[in-house]
Simulated assay, not measured.
Amino acid sequence: MSLVARYLERNGIPTVIMGAAKDIVEHTGVPRFLFSDFPLGNSCGKPHEPDTQRFTLDLALKVLESAIGPRTTVQSPLRWNDDGDWKNDYNNLERMPAEEVAKRRAEFDKVKQTALEQRKKAGVA
């Protein structure tokens, strides 16, 4: 998305990126960026909370309208939770039940097997 935003900007179309991976998005040099300190995949607000989603979209439009220069980053004031402990849980095997680890491993192995079969079909493997 960051590269698409830069392309659109070069062609006269203003953009704003809404994201949760601040280091990655800023590294790619997007023109305007609304950072939400939420888990990946939730940069538009909390799931099933239309009020936080509307707030986030409104804030993104304000960033688009008022950014003072290129590579402007604005951080949303919204918080996922009060203490930020969710950051310790994200893909942390030590804090994940063994059943969840096994489930994710099985899903990953299935995807790898599907990819291998597709590569063999295509004559790439």
Rank of each mutant, 00 (worst) to 15 (best):
S76V: 07
R71E: 15
N88Y: 08
N81T: 03
A67Q: 04
K87E: 13
D85R: 12
L78I: 09
I68T: 13
P77I: 08
D83H: 01
T72I: 04
N81K: 07
I68D: 13
Q75K: 12
W80D: 02
T72A: 04
D85L: 13
R79Q: 15
R71W: 10
P77K: 13
V63P: 00
G84N: 04
L61N: 05
I68S: 14
A67L: 07
T72G: 00
Q75W: 09
D89L: 13
P77F: 10
L78S: 07
S66T: 14
D89R: 13
D58A: 12
D58I: 06
Q75L: 05
V63A: 02
G84K: 02
Q75H: 11
L64S: 02
N92H: 09
D83V: 01
R79C: 11
G84P: 00
L64G: 01
S66M: 12
V63F: 02
W80V: 05
D58G: 10
T73P: 01
P70M: 12
K87A: 12
D82R: 06
I68H: 10
N81Y: 02
D83W: 00
S76W: 06
D58P: 03
A60W: 00
G69D: 12
L61W: 07
T73R: 10
W80T: 04
S76L: 06
L61Q: 06
T73D: 05
N92Y: 08
A60L: 02
D83Q: 01
E65V: 04
I68Y: 09
A67F: 08
D58N: 12
D83N: 13
L64A: 07
K87S: 09
A60Q: 00
D89E: 15
W80S: 04
N81S: 10
G84C: 03
